[in-house]
Design a protein around this nucleic acid. Sequence first.
DNA 1: GTCTATACCAAGATAGAC
DNA 2: GTCTATCTTGGTATAGAC
Lengths: 210, 210
Amino acid sequence: MHAPRKQAAQPRSRATQAAIVEAAARILETSGSAGLTTNAIAARAGVSIGSLYQYFPNKEAVLAALLRTKRAELLSWMRAAVSANQEAPPEKALQALLDAGMRHQVERPRLALEAEYAGQQLHLAEETAALADEMAQLILETVRRLQPAAGLQEARDVVAIAKGIINAAALSSEAGGPGLAARVRRAVRGYLREIPSNSADSRAASSSMP
Amino acid sequence: MHAPRKQAAQPRSRATQAAIVEAAARILETSGSAGLTTNAIAARAGVSIGSLYQYFPNKEAVLAALLRTKRAELLSWMRAAVSANQEAPPEKALQALLDAGMRHQVERPRLALEAEYAGQQLHLAEETAALADEMAQLILETVRRLQPAAGLQEARDVVAIAKGIINAAALSSEAGGPGLAARVRRAVRGYLREIPSNSADSRAASSSMP
DNA sequence: GTCTATACCAAGATAGAC
DNA sequence: GTCTATCTTGGTATAGAC
């Protein structure tokens, strides 16, 4: 389910598929999920409705493909940030991670918002949970260098805090400049500093492999 | 636009209207905005589709009424929290405010999420901005007692941080127990502590009436 | 493999009986 | 004032021509 109809070995098919997915993204940005109709997607992509259904079995599959693309992109940015800062001071490593997240939300803020919501109606719960876990693990690595008492829950909270501030900015159509970045950094730093050394979630983290 | 068709002076009309709005809320909770159809609302409310249109000019009006109800509720809780803690120590006052917000999101987490999103498609930008402002002002009063350097932007960030953590909890269907409350408190405290005394947003706050 | 035309259906909204 | 029946629209998906 939610899988492309065929795996597009040919470069031309691949391009058409990508055009359809990108068209869906553009529509989400301009009209929200209400405007995301198969007709609109096909029109924006410059193909006919029939062609769309040659590549995707239904509307949900297009949306799922879009989500997977964006998520893979974010994850790869975050991984790059971590491995580029293995030797760097932890403050710099954390900053790089936050920058990756900001970049994701700030480049296309409306899309990030709409895609996240639209994804809820899709039955992608497992994938979503897996992504959240992977992100949390990635962040935990870095965060522990700053605050050894941090656990998985704290890592997830760091994501939630950053998302909260960035989403609020997007909703009030505030630009994502250095001011926003500074506030996110302050929020995360402050939170990490408040973690008690006997955090309940350090236990949760170490018991994650029973 | 988005106004009820008549103002229901009669108590029976008032009750019917409320039933329709509550039905919409229940549908949002169980099926999300995709399931929010006029037919479904009428059926849940135990009235016919014709009756629904007697009270509301269209679907959006029902949703708008729901949003206004929930927002008014939250705002009144927050106001109560502030005035009940005028004399209390600032830590307690802040806690009461956070509790009000938590109560709003935790009692009906899915509803809070769905309503917030669905409201975006409604042309209620002015009301939404006004609400955000009022909430920020309310919080600023209390926050300034803890951190005099705080400005409007910081007050808004406090809301965003709390929302971020609570929403993430709701999305992973985590219960809203004391653990969650503690994490929100830590995040907010930590953020407030990080505010530099020459914050750019203290300026923004004082220049809000030019 | 891509198009046009269309079948089918669900949802919003209204008309008119009672 | 509330109901049932219905009109209308627009969106998903398919069939069949080229």
